[in-house]
Nucleic acid binder design. Structure first.
Lengths: 383, 383
DNA sequence: CTGAAAGCGCTTACAG
DNA sequence: CTGAAAGCGCTTACAG
């Protein structure tokens, strides 16, 4: 079995490897001589498997030819290549990543900065990063920093960026600013954190369009106004949603009601819902995300307000679960996976082009999914 | 700012770095001479920053002393250490990970194998791995293989394991068997995938206890029997839940009804719910996980069966969202994050002990969370 | 199209 | 407690 990935040849022969790797010492005179020298001389660590020289010897070529075949680069005569590949397979050879990195200066590794990987957006975006990176022959090393506004993030990024990664993808950096992150100028970076858009090449959902679609949908149903339960106060993306929501209302000549402070979680929506349920004027609520919407719907139920009979509710994100909520949640779907893949492409672009353009932006479309949680307002409450 | 992590000294001085790293060529006669030689001789890649020799020269010590301070190992006189640290800070020195790995044979990196990182269990477990690994000074490199039963997983694992990681954590390997994975014997491994328990050291939730608690809870409420909507057919963990459920019923002298095939998603629960709603004998359903339970509840609602008035429903996992479902979901909570941390400890154990004990197992307790989706059966349906 | 030699930046025994 | 030298396994120009 031979697998060629991005110019890299991985020669498996997994089943045969044990026998081979045991056949290390004294395999031929050259190796033996070297072993003797080593054992009397300077330190030597246990070999992990066959080296490029073992392959070269078996194939009857030089090390560089093996290297060329291994990297998939340069011109090698087909017959020679064939022989080398066969030798690799037979020995179960795999290039030593450390040696390759030390010499070439690149690990073929992309770093990913997250804040809480278990969150919907972060895990889905990371999934997109992983798929695209593996397709392009890159490994991914992941870092989770719960409080990116502290020195913790600098330590983490510093350890990553110094000679260990070829690029950094910022999935979520919380309250950390561009200045706080202080990333090396030469490091390729891509971000989906909207607080950093404009500083680094970015790929993220078209939030403004999504919010406008949500508010527009509720207004089109005849609601006089649309209330909003916000995301957390420190989130830039929550702030974007607030301003897009209020602007859309203003366009319609509607003075936006006071936004209700929320968060990203169902508990936040529940709390906000208990508050909004007391106000009989509330007929339509746009929630910061789906979790918040589901928590809010629960509070409405508890307070005897029907959804969507009395109150229409719309979420944001498009959680699969939201389709099975009671009622099924109308929401704005965003494609996190695609944002993740796009960021990998932005990194590769920078590695190739040797420059970082902070204004480069890939916008992923958002989409209104109409389901059962939105309807025209109760009689007498429309406009 | 100096940060000492697991014997590793990371010296930041981030703000000062740019000035230093520009001061590369011809900084002193040694460097100049070397530059000249290099530029006429063999290939040379751009340096990424100050080297161990730069620090040694500035501190007036030898390279090894710098190495000792850098690794936090060996005896160094406090005054010398101080001088070295100051030099590191001044130059913005960070050890080259590739060189260190090449020489020492270890990357200080743990590999993580996942199948779909966006799933609840996988992302939470991974979060635990990330937190523990970073605490212990390890980096984490993540791989996502959607179809681990194919050759894809061998390619991925092969690329990881060959000289690039110090250990492998299997969060989820789907249908891939122990034989299929064919991991090198010397590689430290820990798994939370129940299909691999017994082959590798493992850390996972006490599923059997959780299932017994779920079934026991419903029986204690007076239900005559408990139906079960299963996870996917190819999941070992789903199979474990099926057998624990049927055994618990049998202990009570109850012949288990036919399990209803499900999956891990709300859509699966919805489908199963439509089927079970038709059977008036069904008064209690234990679902493979919370998503399935929520989908099933929705189907029950649609068919006019009240939860828990007509049918009690219990989930598994303990999604935060489940608390805000309608009704709030009774469930079995498992601590994925803790399983992740425990696996890192299992890896570190093996690195230290140089051996892998497939029977070593860390069991994480599960816990019944009683909420509103379970109640005594309707009058006349109890036992 | 192929090979001989240098060197990437560390760590490892060893000697003092 | 400290230093001089070897070498980890590759890749990179360069010469043929």
């Amino acid at each position: 079995m031979r697998v060629q990935i991005n110019g890299d040849v991985d020669t498996h022969g997994l089943s045969r490897r044990p026998a081979t790797s045991r056949a290390r010492p004294g395999k031929d005179s050259t190796r033996t001589a070297r072993d003797i020298v080593s054992s009397m001389g300077a330190g030597r660590i246990g070999r992990q498997g066959p080296s490029i020289d073992d392959v070269a010897r078996l194939a009857g070529v030089s090390g560089q030819t093996v290297s060329r075949v291994s990297r998939g680069s340069g011109k090698v005569r087909p017959a020679t290549r064939e022989r080398v590949l066969r030798a690799m397979e037979q020995l179960g050879y795999a290039p030593n990543r450390a040696a390759r990195a030390l010499r070439s200066g690149s690990f073929n590794l992309i770093g990913v900065l997250t804040q809480q990987i278990q969150r919907t957006g972060e895990s889905r975006t990371t999934s997109g990063v992983l798929d695209a990176a593996s397709r392009l022959g890159y490994g991914v090393t992941l870092v989770q920093v719960a409080h990116p506004e502290t020195d913790e993030v600098r330590t983490a990024v510093y350890r990553l960026s110094h000679q260990a990664i070829d690029g950094l993808i910022i999935v979520q950096a919380g309250k950390a600013s561009y200045e706080h992150l202080a990333l090396p100028a030469g490091l390729p970076v891509a971000s989906s954190d909207s607080a950093l858009t404009g500083y680094y090449p970015s790929a993220s959902a078209d939030q403004v369009h999504g919010v406008r679609a949500a508010v527009g949908h509720l207004l089109a149903l005849g609601h006089r106004t649309v209330h909003h339960v916000t995301g957390p106060a420190d989130s830039q993306s929550a702030a974007t949603r607030i301003s897009a929501w209020s602007r859309r209302l203003e366009e319609e000549g509607i003075a936006p009601p006071a936004p209700v402070p929320g968060g990203w979680e169902a508990a936040d929506g529940y709390r906000a819902g208990l508050e909004l349920a007391q106000d009989p004027q509330v007929s339509a609520v746009f929630c910061a995300n789906d979790e918040v919407a589901l928590g809010l719907i629960r509070a409405m139920h508890e307070r005897g307000r029907r959804v969507p009979g009395d109150v229409s509710v719309i979420g944001f994100d498009g959680l699969p679960l939201a389709e099975y909520a009671f009622p099924p949640l109308t929401t704005i779907r965003q494609d996190f996976h695609r944002a993740g893949s796009a960021m990998v492409e932005l990194i590769v672009e920078q590695i190739a082009g040797k420059s970082r353009d902070g204004t480069r932006r890939i916008v992923i479309p958002t989409e209104l999914i109409e389901r059962g949680s939105t309807a025209p307002p109760p009689a007498g409450q429309g406009r």
